[in-house]
Design a protein around this nucleic acid. Structure first.
Lengths: 242, 242
DNA sequence: CCCATCTGCGTATGTCCTACGCAGCTGAGC
DNA sequence: GCTCAGCTGCGTAGGACATACGCAGATGGG
C-alpha cells in the first residue's frame, strides 16, 4: 500500500517514512504550514509568497522547498490543517446539521483564502474527510439512503461556501467604498432597466441587511425541505430507493 | 452625476466620454474582453496573462493598458460580460426560480474562472445586476417581502455557486487521477476514523454519482422549504413582517 | 496649416516561483 | 572512532509576469 501514491497524499496521511541520517531539521512542515496560514489569515492569500513566508520563519526562501514540493502543495497542506476538528454534533438531524454547517461557515470566515485556493480535485485530505464524515453523521438516525445523505450534506456545504465566498472575502478587504453601497446602487438602478431591483430598493429593503440573513434564511428553508422529505419517508417505510 | 465614480464603473455604465482627436483605435475594449474570456474559458484563468492576451490579439502587451487600467479591471469587465443576458422566466415562482438558477449554474460551468476571480466588492456591474433583477422577478406574484425575496434569491445563488465552485473547476482540469476516486477513497477511509463515511462507501453509494445530483437534490429541498413559507403566508395574509 | 491629443508600444523595474547544485552536519555500520 | 551516505539549509540564476514611464506617429479641430 501507499507505494504509487503522489507525494502530497503520502505526507498528508503520515505514510511518508522519516529519514534517519542527516542533521536535525530546524524547520518543520507544521511550523511552515502554521505560519503560512497566519499570513494568509492576516493579509490575504495574495500576500502569501514563499519569500515573505521564509522571512517570517527566519530562513531562506529555498529552504522551504525541502519540506514542500511547491507552492500548490503548500496550499493543499494549509487547506488540510486550517479547518481543524469538526464540531461535536448535538442529537437530532436538524440541530446536528445546523451545528455542522454553521461551524463550517465559521471556518470559512476565519480563513477566507480557503475559497480562493481551488483544489481542482475531489477531497482526499484527512481534514476534509473528517468534516464530511461528521456532516454525514448528522443523518445517522434518519431513514434516508446514504446517497441522499451525501447529497444533502453537500447541499448545505454549497450554501455555506457560496455565501462565504461572496461575503467573507468582502469583509476581509479594506472598506474603501467611497459611497455607501445602497446610495451607489440607487444611482444606477432605474425602474426601466431593473424593475424588480428598483422596486426592492424603493421599499428600502435591499442592501442594508446584515449578510447573516441570507445564509440563515436559506438554511432554514433548506432544512424545512429536508424535514418534509424525512417525514414523508418515515410515514411510508419500505425499500429505500437509491 | 458620474463625476466622482471610479473609472471602472464609468466605463461599465457607458458614462465615459469618447475622445475626438487622435488616431483611429485598432484595438477596442470589446475585442480585448472577448479574447480574454476566450483564453480563460479554454485554458483556465492561470493561462490568462497580459502577454498571452496581447499575442492572441496581435499587439504589444503594453497596448492593452490604453484600454484597461490594470489586470484586475480587465477581470471585472470579463465578469460583467461573460454571463450575457439572464433567461426569460416562465410564470410561477417555482418554475421561474428553477429556470433562473439552472441558467446561472450553466454560466458558471461555461466560465469556471468567474468563481476564481474574486470581486471583493458588492456587485455593481450592470451584468450582475441584470441577473439579480431577473432572479427577484421570479417572486413577483408571491406574498413575500422584498427582503425575503432577496434573501431567497441569494440562497439559490449560493447553492449554484457553491456547487459550481467545487465541480466545475474539477471538470475543467485534466483528469490526471491515477486511480478512480472511489478506489482511492476506500483506501484511506477506515471505519474507526470515519465511521459515517465508511458506512456510505460500504453501501456503494458514494463517489459514484453524477455531480448533478447534489445540486438538483439540494435545490428541490430548498424550493420545498420556500413553498412551505409561501403557502403559510398565503393562508394568513396580513401586514408583511420585515 | 498647426498643434493638442490620442494610440500603440519599447524599455526597464520589481516581484514572483523554482531548478540546480554546493557545503556542512549527522548517525549507521564497521 | 572512522567513514561516508544521505540529509538539511541555502546561494545563484533563470524565466514569467504586471506594469510605470515616456516617445513616435497619426489625426482632426481651429
Amino acid at each position: 500500500m501507499a507505494s504509487d501514491l503522489p507525494r502530497t497524499l503520502k505526507v498528508l496521511w503520515g505514510v511518508a517514512e522519516r529519514p534517519a541520517r542527516g542533521p536535525q531539521p530546524t524547520l518543520s512542515l507544521d511550523r511552515i504550514v502554521a505560519t503560512a496560514i497566519e499570513i494568509a489569515d492576516r493579509d490575504g492569500l495574495a500576500a502569501l509568497s514563499m519569500a515573505r513566508l521564509a522571512e517570517r520563519l527566519g530562513c531562506a526562501p529555498m529552504s522551504l522547498y525541502r519540506h514542500v514540493a511547491n507552492k500548490d502543495e503548500l496550499l493543499v497542506f494549509m487547506q488540510n490543517t486550517a479547518p481543524g476538528e469538526p464540531p461535536v454534533l448535538p442529537p437530532g438531524w436538524r440541530d446536528g446539521l445546523v451545528t455542522w454547517v454553521r461551524a463550517l461557515r465559521g471556518v470559512l470566515y476565519a480563513h477566507p483564502w480557503i475559497l480562493q485556493a481551488t483544489a481542482g480535485r475531489p477531497p482526499l485530505e484527512p481534514g476534509q474527510l473528517a468534516w464530511l464524515d461528521r456532516g454525514l453523521s448528522a443523518f445517522r438516525d434518519t431513514p434516508l439512503s446514504h446517497r441522499e445523505r451525501g447529497d444533502l450534506v453537500l447541499a448545505a456545504l454549497y450554501l455555506a461556501r457560496g455565501e462565504a465566498h461572496i461575503n467573507a472575502v468582502l469583509l476581509s478587504g479594506p472598506p474603501d467604498v467611497t459611497e455607501d453601497y445602497g446610495t451607489l446602487l440607487a444611482r444606477f438602478v432605474t425602474a426601466d432597466r431593473f424593475p424588480a431591483l428598483a422596486e426592492a430598493i424603493a421599499a428600502g429593503e435591499f442592501g442594508g441587511g446584515e449578510p447573516d440573513n441570507s445564509f440563515e434564511i436559506g438554511l432554514a428553508r433548506l432544512l424545512d425541505g429536508i424535514e418534509l422529505l424525512i417525514t414523508a419517508r418515515e410515514d411510508q417505510p419500505g425499500p429505500q430507493p437509491a
